[in-house]
Amino acid sequence: MCILTRMSIGHTLLGLLESGPRHGYDLKRAFDERFGHDRPLHYGQVYSTMSRLLKHGLVEVEAIEPGEGPERKRYAITEAGVTDVARWLATPEKPEPYLQSTLYTKVVLALLTRRDAADILDVQRAEHLRLMRDLTERKRTGDLADQLICDHALFHLEADLRWLELTAARLDRLAREVSA
């Protein structure tokens, strides 16, 4: 599960820099600590992103420590970078209507082929619940950040489950319309 898109990784790193200049590996550690629960950043990702930001003039290299490798660079945010972070934070995310397209297709196909569509829904519900159960268990053992992130996922899954319930309740009607 990817929590942040590529685009927003840049903004996130910029935001981390706002509190003060950091080395590249510092940035990676700070990012992983807070946002990288599911998938930590690769070093390569950090450097490609930083070079992109450098190109756009959003960061600058403040100092290069003695030693080898690019990881010795210390990055600082520029005025333009600060403005960019502010703009990003102020812009609402585009709501993504997540169509249950695959599942919907399965249900319709089952109805068309006279299979038990309710079974599909039930199996899916069990699967959803299994996942929710895992998340809930993780919440129990994790810290606050874990809990918030898991909750986010849980609410989404719950929404899916509601759709499953609703569809299950309307299967008869759907069957009639599909076969009509």
């Binding site: 039930d122 519900r125 069990a126 959803h128 619940l129 929710m132 159960r133 998340l135 809930t136 849980l154 609410f155 899954l157 719950e158 489950l161 509601r162 299950a168």
Partner: peptide, 16 residues
């Protein structure tokens, strides 16, 4: 009837 509450269970039984 809430999935999030049911997620605290070990297993669910559906009544229909």
């Amino acid at each position: 009837h809430e999935a999030r509450v049911a997620a605290y269970s070990d297993r669910e039984v559906v009544v229909r």
